[in-house]
Amino acid sequence: MAGVTRGDGEADAEATGTDDAGPAMRRRRLLRTGVNLGASAALVAGFGADYVSSRDLDTITYAMVRPDPGSPELEPRTKEVPAAWHESLRIAFEAKERLIQAGAESLVGAFVVPGSHDGPAASLSVDATEENVSDALADPSDGVDLSVNLLEGVPPQPDADSDRADAYQLPSLSSGRVPGGVVCETDAGHGTLTPALYGESGSPFFGTSNHVFGEGGTMTTEHRGEPLAVLVDGDPHVVGTVARGYPTADLVRVAPTDGFEPRSAIQRASPRRVVGQYTRLGLADLMARGEKLTKVGSYSDRTTGSIEGIDGVTCYTGRSCKTGQLKWGGQGDVVDGDSGSVNYHVDPENPDGGVLVGGLNNARTWWPGADFSWGTAAHHLLDEHGLHF
């Protein structure tokens, strides 16, 4: 991606939080409110969804769902949303891309922040080390509010600190079927299994954050063949070996071995079954309606938080920036060892039948003045790598 790649692919090291407060980060708000928003964006800003007629509704695909639990095939789910809200998102997505393509070295993170269905319009939330990052959107016709958090650099990450004795372990492996949300172990550390992932073959595979494999997980194939184990009564049981990593998504693909089978389920979630995933617009719609995401990590169990931004780019850690990022909750929602867990929301058309995944949980903030968790959105895995839940 032009403008943001700062080295060969690698994975984020897992972040830990801090309660320290200090002047390391200053917040500035820079507003660039366009005068040429057009009828749709003006409707969002001024009139609200209560005044939108059926002629002013758009149909969006909000989720991709597997209609049958045993099928890897996906079918689209659609709904109607205010056309003006939809148009304001389009404008914000395009403005974010222009900001990224400008290639400002000071850009550290950028997320689209959808408005509610009755206003205001979508905006951009940006982390940068220099205020002039906003120059990339200097044209008033952009029509996008830009909120800039000015950082005086991002401090080094603290060392991870987790004890596997504190993690949730499977009570048994007798069935050979392994759900997500349980602790997994590599030679380099611990993480959390995703629910079953699917690729072009249609066969399920295991997954977790690529950085759980340490330095070996910073490239695509360097850790190919390395074992991934789950714990039962403190004993590791190898359930698969690495097929490949996706460093810019911080995901590793693990092929099952010895008859073990990944399940489309999240241990201790309610309901447990994973039936699909949200699209980019589906996440925007959830945020517009104030709906929250939940995650089950092997160390911190279940937490719930609000969506803070979508379709993001992050350059907080590592040698390359990561696109397709989802920001949600607080830094306490993801702790050491939770990396690889997923965030999710109940299926709105069948709340008792399953959940839809929002994305991976790969990291959390550790610097003063910031309080969120983030990771690669599920829609980005599908769009860029052909992988889905």
Results as ranks from 00 to 15, higher is better:
108 V>C: 10
108 V>G: 04
110 A>T: 12
111 F>N: 03
112 V>L: 03
112 V>W: 02
113 V>P: 00
113 V>H: 03
115 G>T: 05
115 G>V: 05
116 S>H: 05
116 S>I: 00
117 H>P: 01
119 G>A: 06
119 G>Q: 06
122 A>Y: 03
122 A>Q: 04
124 L>K: 05
124 L>A: 06
128 A>L: 03
128 A>W: 00
129 T>W: 05
130 E>G: 03
130 E>V: 05
131 E>R: 15
131 E>G: 07
132 N>A: 15
132 N>G: 11
133 V>F: 00
136 A>F: 12
136 A>V: 15
138 A>H: 07
138 A>V: 13
139 D>H: 07
139 D>E: 13
140 P>E: 13
141 S>P: 00
143 G>E: 06
143 G>S: 12
143 G>H: 07
144 V>K: 01
144 V>A: 03
145 D>W: 04
146 L>T: 11
148 V>Y: 09
148 V>D: 00
149 N>G: 01
149 N>Q: 11
150 L>T: 02
151 L>W: 08
151 L>Y: 10
151 L>G: 00
155 P>F: 09
155 P>N: 10
155 P>L: 13
156 P>M: 04
156 P>G: 04
157 Q>G: 10
160 A>Y: 02
160 A>F: 01
160 A>G: 08
160 A>V: 11
161 D>V: 11
161 D>K: 13
161 D>L: 09
163 D>L: 02
163 D>Y: 09
163 D>G: 01
164 R>H: 07
165 A>G: 14
165 A>H: 14
167 A>E: 08
168 Y>Q: 09
170 L>T: 14
170 L>R: 13
171 P>C: 11
171 P>Q: 05
172 S>I: 13
172 S>W: 13
172 S>A: 15
172 S>E: 09
172 S>T: 15
173 L>C: 12
173 L>Q: 13
174 S>A: 15
174 S>C: 09
174 S>H: 14
177 R>H: 04
177 R>A: 11
177 R>G: 00
178 V>E: 05
179 P>L: 02
180 G>F: 06
180 G>H: 08
180 G>K: 07
180 G>P: 04
181 G>E: 08
182 V>N: 02
182 V>T: 04
182 V>E: 05
183 V>K: 08
183 V>W: 10
183 V>S: 03
184 C>D: 09
185 E>Q: 12
186 T>S: 13
186 T>Y: 11
187 D>F: 12
187 D>R: 15
188 A>I: 02
189 G>P: 10
189 G>D: 13
190 H>N: 08
191 G>D: 06
192 T>R: 10
192 T>H: 01
193 L>S: 04
193 L>E: 01
193 L>W: 14
194 T>G: 00
195 P>I: 02
196 A>G: 13
196 A>W: 05
197 L>Y: 07
198 Y>E: 05
198 Y>W: 10
201 S>F: 03
201 S>E: 08
201 S>H: 11
202 G>Y: 03
202 G>C: 04
203 S>E: 15
206 F>Q: 07
206 F>L: 10
